[in-house]
Protein backbone atom coordinates (compact mmCIF):
# COMPACT_ATOMS: atom_id res chain seq x y z
CA UNK A 1 0.00 0.00 0.00
CA UNK A 2 1.53 3.32 -0.96
CA UNK A 3 1.37 6.45 1.09
CA UNK A 4 -1.36 8.13 -0.93
CA UNK A 5 -3.64 5.12 -0.63
CA UNK A 6 -3.02 4.99 3.11
CA UNK A 7 -3.92 8.64 3.55
CA UNK A 8 -7.06 8.17 1.48
CA UNK A 9 -8.19 5.15 3.47
CA UNK A 10 -7.51 6.75 6.82
CA UNK A 11 -9.28 9.96 5.74
CA UNK A 12 -12.37 7.97 4.85
CA UNK A 13 -12.27 6.22 8.23
CA UNK A 14 -11.94 9.54 9.98
CA UNK A 15 -14.84 10.98 8.04
CA UNK A 16 -16.95 8.03 9.12
CA UNK A 17 -16.00 8.42 12.78
CA UNK A 18 -16.72 12.11 12.59
CA UNK A 19 -20.13 11.37 11.12
CA UNK A 20 -20.92 9.09 14.04
CA UNK A 21 -19.84 11.78 16.51
CA UNK A 22 -22.06 14.29 14.70
CA UNK A 23 -25.00 11.92 14.95
CA UNK A 24 -24.43 11.13 18.62
CA UNK A 25 -24.31 14.83 19.39
CA UNK A 26 -27.59 15.36 17.52
CA UNK A 27 -29.25 12.57 19.49
CA UNK A 28 -27.94 13.88 22.81
CA UNK A 29 -29.18 17.32 21.93
CA UNK A 30 -32.70 16.01 21.41
CA UNK A 31 -32.63 13.47 24.24
CA UNK A 32 -31.66 16.00 26.89
CA UNK A 33 -34.51 17.28 29.04
CA UNK A 34 -35.91 20.62 27.94
CA UNK A 35 -36.85 22.18 24.63
CA UNK A 36 -34.27 21.97 21.82
CA UNK A 37 -35.54 25.21 20.28
CA UNK A 38 -34.88 27.21 23.43
CA UNK A 39 -31.38 25.79 23.42
CA UNK A 40 -30.60 27.26 20.01
CA UNK A 41 -32.55 30.51 20.18
CA UNK A 42 -31.65 33.10 22.77
CA UNK A 43 -34.62 34.33 24.85
CA UNK A 44 -33.78 37.98 24.17
CA UNK A 45 -34.03 37.72 20.37
CA UNK A 46 -36.71 39.56 18.40
CA UNK A 47 -39.52 37.38 17.05
CA UNK A 48 -38.46 37.81 13.41
CA UNK A 49 -34.84 36.99 14.09
CA UNK A 50 -35.86 33.94 16.10
CA UNK A 51 -38.16 32.75 13.33
CA UNK A 52 -35.48 33.15 10.72
CA UNK A 53 -32.97 31.21 12.83
CA UNK A 54 -35.49 28.44 13.51
CA UNK A 55 -36.27 27.97 9.84
CA UNK A 56 -32.59 28.18 8.94
CA UNK A 57 -31.68 25.46 11.43
CA UNK A 58 -34.80 23.47 10.54
CA UNK A 59 -36.02 23.34 14.12
CA UNK A 60 -39.66 23.52 13.01
CA UNK A 61 -39.32 20.38 10.87
CA UNK A 62 -39.87 16.71 11.80
CA UNK A 63 -36.92 15.06 13.51
CA UNK A 64 -35.47 13.18 10.52
CA UNK A 65 -35.53 16.35 8.42
CA UNK A 66 -33.92 18.25 11.29
CA UNK A 67 -31.09 15.75 11.16
CA UNK A 68 -30.54 16.44 7.44
CA UNK A 69 -30.65 20.16 8.11
CA UNK A 70 -28.14 19.68 10.87
CA UNK A 71 -25.69 17.81 8.62
CA UNK A 72 -26.15 20.32 5.84
CA UNK A 73 -25.66 23.24 8.22
CA UNK A 74 -22.49 21.71 9.53
CA UNK A 75 -20.93 21.58 6.09
CA UNK A 76 -22.23 25.04 5.29
CA UNK A 77 -20.58 26.32 8.48
CA UNK A 78 -23.90 27.42 9.93
CA UNK A 79 -24.03 26.73 13.67
CA UNK A 80 -26.46 29.40 14.78
CA UNK A 81 -25.84 32.49 16.86
CA UNK A 82 -23.85 32.49 20.08
CA UNK A 83 -25.93 33.67 23.05
CA UNK A 84 -23.04 35.35 24.73
CA UNK A 85 -21.38 37.09 21.79
CA UNK A 86 -24.47 37.69 19.69
CA UNK A 87 -22.43 36.73 16.62
CA UNK A 88 -22.54 33.73 14.29
CA UNK A 89 -20.77 30.86 16.03
CA UNK A 90 -18.56 30.17 13.02
CA UNK A 91 -16.87 33.58 13.35
CA UNK A 92 -15.90 32.85 16.94
CA UNK A 93 -14.59 29.40 16.02
CA UNK A 94 -12.58 30.99 13.21
CA UNK A 95 -10.93 33.35 15.68
CA UNK A 96 -10.23 30.73 18.37
CA UNK A 97 -9.19 27.67 16.40
CA UNK A 98 -5.81 28.98 15.12
CA UNK A 99 -4.77 29.92 18.66
CA UNK A 100 -5.48 26.41 19.91
CA UNK A 101 -3.67 24.81 17.00
CA UNK A 102 -0.65 27.03 17.60
CA UNK A 103 -0.37 26.13 21.30
CA UNK A 104 -1.31 22.48 20.86
CA UNK A 105 1.01 21.59 17.97
CA UNK A 106 3.96 23.50 19.43
CA UNK A 107 3.61 21.79 22.79
CA UNK A 108 3.13 18.27 21.41
CA UNK A 109 5.99 18.72 18.96
CA UNK A 110 8.46 20.14 21.47
CA UNK A 111 7.70 17.66 24.23
CA UNK A 112 7.85 14.68 21.85
CA UNK A 113 11.18 15.90 20.46
CA UNK A 114 12.70 16.46 23.90
CA UNK A 115 11.24 13.24 25.29
CA UNK A 116 12.70 11.21 22.43
CA UNK A 117 16.08 12.87 22.73
CA UNK A 118 16.40 12.43 26.49
CA UNK A 119 14.82 8.99 26.52
CA UNK A 120 17.41 7.82 24.02
CA UNK A 121 20.26 8.96 26.22
CA UNK A 122 18.77 7.74 29.50
CA UNK A 123 18.25 4.25 28.07
CA UNK A 124 21.98 4.08 27.48
CA UNK A 125 22.60 4.49 31.21
CA UNK A 126 20.11 1.84 32.24
CA UNK A 127 20.38 0.88 35.92
CA UNK A 128 22.71 3.72 36.87
CA UNK A 129 21.66 6.48 39.29
CA UNK A 130 21.04 8.89 36.36
CA UNK A 131 18.50 6.48 34.94
CA UNK A 132 16.67 5.88 38.22
CA UNK A 133 16.62 9.60 38.97
CA UNK A 134 15.32 10.62 35.54
CA UNK A 135 12.72 7.83 35.56
CA UNK A 136 11.30 8.93 38.89
CA UNK A 137 11.42 12.58 37.86
CA UNK A 138 9.53 11.76 34.65
CA UNK A 139 6.92 9.87 36.62
CA UNK A 140 6.47 12.86 38.90
CA UNK A 141 6.16 15.27 35.94
CA UNK A 142 3.69 12.99 34.22
CA UNK A 143 1.36 12.79 37.21
CA UNK A 144 1.42 16.47 38.23
CA UNK A 145 -2.09 17.90 38.29
CA UNK A 146 -2.14 20.25 35.32
CA UNK A 147 -4.40 23.11 36.51
CA UNK A 148 -2.52 23.21 39.78
CA UNK A 149 0.92 23.39 38.20
CA UNK A 150 -0.42 26.10 35.87
CA UNK A 151 -1.67 28.14 38.84
CA UNK A 152 1.65 27.57 40.59
CA UNK A 153 3.60 28.81 37.56
CA UNK A 154 1.44 31.91 37.31
CA UNK A 155 1.92 32.53 41.01
CA UNK A 156 5.70 32.09 40.90
CA UNK A 157 6.84 33.27 37.47
CA UNK A 158 4.20 35.86 36.61
CA UNK A 159 3.10 37.21 40.00
CA UNK A 160 6.12 36.90 42.30
CA UNK A 161 9.01 37.19 39.84
CA UNK A 162 7.17 39.07 37.13
CA UNK A 163 8.93 37.52 34.14
CA UNK A 164 5.75 36.73 32.25
CA UNK A 165 2.34 38.30 31.79
CA UNK A 166 -0.40 36.96 34.11
CA UNK A 167 -2.65 35.73 31.32
CA UNK A 168 -4.00 36.32 27.83
CA UNK A 169 -2.32 36.01 24.46
CA UNK A 170 -1.47 39.60 23.48
CA UNK A 171 -0.85 42.99 25.05
CA UNK A 172 -3.76 45.04 23.63
CA UNK A 173 -1.97 48.44 23.79
CA UNK A 174 0.91 47.11 21.73
CA UNK A 175 -1.44 45.75 19.05
CA UNK A 176 -3.52 48.92 18.85
CA UNK A 177 -0.40 50.96 18.17
CA UNK A 178 -0.10 51.08 14.34
CA UNK A 179 3.69 51.45 14.45
CA UNK A 180 4.20 47.95 15.91
CA UNK A 181 5.87 45.70 13.38
CA UNK A 182 5.24 42.03 12.64
CA UNK A 183 8.21 40.81 14.68
CA UNK A 184 7.23 42.80 17.73
CA UNK A 185 3.76 41.26 17.53
CA UNK A 186 5.15 37.76 17.13
CA UNK A 187 7.49 38.33 20.07
CA UNK A 188 4.53 39.51 22.13
CA UNK A 189 2.59 36.32 21.41
CA UNK A 190 5.69 34.25 22.15
CA UNK A 191 6.12 36.01 25.48
CA UNK A 192 2.54 35.21 26.43
CA UNK A 193 2.83 31.66 25.17
CA UNK A 194 5.95 30.61 27.09
CA UNK A 195 4.28 29.84 30.40
CA UNK A 196 1.36 27.78 29.00
CA UNK A 197 3.87 26.02 26.77
CA UNK A 198 6.10 25.23 29.72
CA UNK A 199 3.13 23.80 31.62
CA UNK A 200 2.11 21.49 28.78
CA UNK A 201 5.74 20.58 28.11
CA UNK A 202 6.36 19.46 31.68
CA UNK A 203 3.19 17.37 31.74
CA UNK A 204 3.95 15.59 28.46
CA UNK A 205 7.70 15.27 28.27
CA UNK A 206 7.93 12.66 31.03
CA UNK A 207 5.48 10.38 29.27
CA UNK A 208 7.35 10.49 25.95
CA UNK A 209 10.68 10.07 27.70
CA UNK A 210 9.53 6.92 29.49
CA UNK A 211 8.12 5.38 26.33
CA UNK A 212 11.25 6.18 24.33
CA UNK A 213 13.39 4.73 27.11
CA UNK A 214 11.60 1.39 27.26
CA UNK A 215 11.30 1.19 23.49
CA UNK A 216 15.02 1.88 23.18
CA UNK A 217 15.82 -0.84 25.74
CA UNK A 218 13.83 -3.29 23.67
CA UNK A 219 15.68 -2.50 20.44
CA UNK A 220 19.02 -2.72 22.22
CA UNK A 221 18.37 -6.44 22.73
CA UNK A 222 18.03 -7.03 19.00
CA UNK A 223 20.62 -8.97 17.06
CA UNK A 224 21.41 -6.20 14.62
CA UNK A 225 22.74 -4.09 17.49
CA UNK A 226 25.13 -6.90 18.27
CA UNK A 227 26.14 -6.93 14.60
CA UNK A 228 26.74 -3.20 14.69
CA UNK A 229 28.91 -3.64 17.79
CA UNK A 230 30.83 -6.45 16.11
CA UNK A 231 31.51 -4.18 13.16
CA UNK A 232 33.26 -1.88 15.63
CA UNK A 233 30.96 1.12 15.20
CA UNK A 234 31.12 3.84 17.82
CA UNK A 235 28.55 3.75 20.64
CA UNK A 236 27.10 7.05 19.52
CA UNK A 237 26.58 5.82 15.99
CA UNK A 238 24.93 2.60 17.20
CA UNK A 239 22.63 4.60 19.42
CA UNK A 240 21.61 7.26 16.92
CA UNK A 241 21.68 5.37 13.63
CA UNK A 242 20.92 1.75 14.49
CA UNK A 243 18.83 1.64 17.65
CA UNK A 244 16.94 4.94 17.75
CA UNK A 245 15.14 4.87 14.36
CA UNK A 246 13.35 1.65 15.30
CA UNK A 247 12.61 2.89 18.78
CA UNK A 248 10.76 5.96 17.46
CA UNK A 249 7.77 3.94 16.33
CA UNK A 250 6.11 3.23 19.70
CA UNK A 251 6.53 6.88 20.63
CA UNK A 252 4.67 7.96 17.49
CA UNK A 253 1.89 5.45 18.21
CA UNK A 254 1.62 6.78 21.71
CA UNK A 255 1.43 10.39 20.59
CA UNK A 256 -1.63 9.33 18.59
CA UNK A 257 -3.19 7.44 21.47
CA UNK A 258 -2.73 10.25 23.94
CA UNK A 259 -3.97 13.04 21.65
CA UNK A 260 -7.43 13.14 23.22
CA UNK A 261 -5.79 13.24 26.62
CA UNK A 262 -3.52 16.09 25.49
CA UNK A 263 -6.48 18.10 24.28
CA UNK A 264 -8.10 17.77 27.72
CA UNK A 265 -4.91 19.21 29.17
CA UNK A 266 -4.84 21.87 26.46
CA UNK A 267 -8.34 23.04 27.37
CA UNK A 268 -7.41 23.25 31.06
CA UNK A 269 -4.22 25.17 30.25
CA UNK A 270 -6.12 27.60 28.03
CA UNK A 271 -8.65 28.20 30.78
CA UNK A 272 -6.15 28.87 33.53
CA UNK A 273 -3.98 31.11 31.35
CA UNK A 274 -6.95 32.78 29.62
CA UNK A 275 -5.46 31.74 26.29
CA UNK A 276 -8.20 32.57 23.76
CA UNK A 277 -8.44 29.06 22.32
CA UNK A 278 -11.31 26.79 21.43
CA UNK A 279 -10.97 24.62 24.55
CA UNK A 280 -11.39 27.60 26.84
CA UNK A 281 -14.28 28.77 24.69
CA UNK A 282 -15.99 25.39 25.15
CA UNK A 283 -15.60 25.48 28.93
CA UNK A 284 -16.77 29.07 28.94
CA UNK A 285 -19.78 28.28 26.73
CA UNK A 286 -20.74 25.30 28.89
CA UNK A 287 -20.62 27.44 32.04
CA UNK A 288 -22.85 30.06 30.39
CA UNK A 289 -25.32 27.59 28.84
CA UNK A 290 -24.36 28.94 25.42
CA UNK A 291 -25.38 25.71 23.65
CA UNK A 292 -24.79 26.66 19.99
CA UNK A 293 -21.23 27.70 20.79
CA UNK A 294 -20.56 24.71 23.05
CA UNK A 295 -21.70 22.18 20.45
CA UNK A 296 -19.68 23.77 17.65
CA UNK A 297 -16.58 24.00 19.85
CA UNK A 298 -16.91 20.34 20.72
CA UNK A 299 -17.26 19.31 17.08
CA UNK A 300 -14.21 21.29 16.05
CA UNK A 301 -12.14 19.90 18.90
CA UNK A 302 -13.08 16.38 17.82
CA UNK A 303 -12.09 17.34 14.29
CA UNK A 304 -8.70 18.60 15.50
CA UNK A 305 -8.09 15.32 17.34
CA UNK A 306 -9.09 13.27 14.29
CA UNK A 307 -6.92 15.26 11.87
CA UNK A 308 -4.00 15.09 14.30
CA UNK A 309 -4.51 11.32 14.39
CA UNK A 310 -4.28 11.25 10.62
CA UNK A 311 -1.03 13.22 10.73
CA UNK A 312 0.36 10.77 13.29
CA UNK A 313 -0.55 7.85 11.03
CA UNK A 314 1.21 9.44 8.09
CA UNK A 315 4.31 10.10 10.18
CA UNK A 316 4.22 6.48 11.32
CA UNK A 317 3.98 5.23 7.75
CA UNK A 318 6.84 7.52 6.80
CA UNK A 319 9.05 6.17 9.59
CA UNK A 320 8.10 2.54 9.11
CA UNK A 321 8.47 1.40 5.48
CA UNK A 322 6.70 -1.90 6.30
CA UNK A 323 3.43 0.02 6.46
CA UNK A 324 3.95 1.66 3.09
CA UNK A 325 4.82 -1.34 0.98
Amino acid sequence: MNLRKLILRRSLEILLIFFVILTILFLLFHLAPGDPVSRMVEPGMTAEDAEMLISQLGLDQPLWLQYLYYIKNFFAGNFGISFHYGQPVINIIGMRLPNTILLFTTSVFLSALAGVFWGKIVAWYKGRPVDTGVTILSLVCHTLFLPWIALLFIWIFAYRVGWFPLNGMITPELWLDPSTGFFAKAADIGHHMLLPLLTLFIIHVGEYLLIMRSSMLETLNEDYILTARAKGLSEKRIRNRHAAPNAYLPVVTNVGLSLAFSINGGALTETVFSWPGIGRELIFAVSNNDYPLAMACFLFISLVVLVANLVVDVVYAYLDPRIRY
Binding site: I21, P33, N264, Y291, S302
Partner: peptide
Protein backbone atom coordinates in the same frame (compact mmCIF):
# COMPACT_ATOMS: atom_id res chain seq x y z
CA UNK B 1 -13.34 1.45 20.98
CA UNK B 2 -11.34 3.59 18.53
CA UNK B 3 -14.18 6.06 18.36
CA UNK B 4 -14.40 6.47 22.12
CA UNK B 5 -10.66 6.72 22.32
CA UNK B 6 -10.49 9.83 20.13
CA UNK B 7 -13.06 11.64 22.28
CA UNK B 8 -11.55 13.93 24.91
CA UNK B 9 -13.29 12.47 27.97
CA UNK B 10 -13.17 15.59 30.11
CA UNK B 11 -14.78 17.74 27.44
CA UNK B 12 -17.48 15.16 26.67
CA UNK B 13 -18.44 14.99 30.33
CA UNK B 14 -18.51 18.80 30.40
CA UNK B 15 -20.84 18.88 27.43
CA UNK B 16 -23.11 16.29 29.04
CA UNK B 17 -23.14 18.34 32.22
CA UNK B 18 -24.33 21.34 30.25
CA UNK B 19 -27.07 19.39 28.47
CA UNK B 20 -28.34 17.32 31.38
CA UNK B 21 -27.67 19.70 34.25
Amino acid sequence: ADMIMVMPSLLVVLLLASLFG
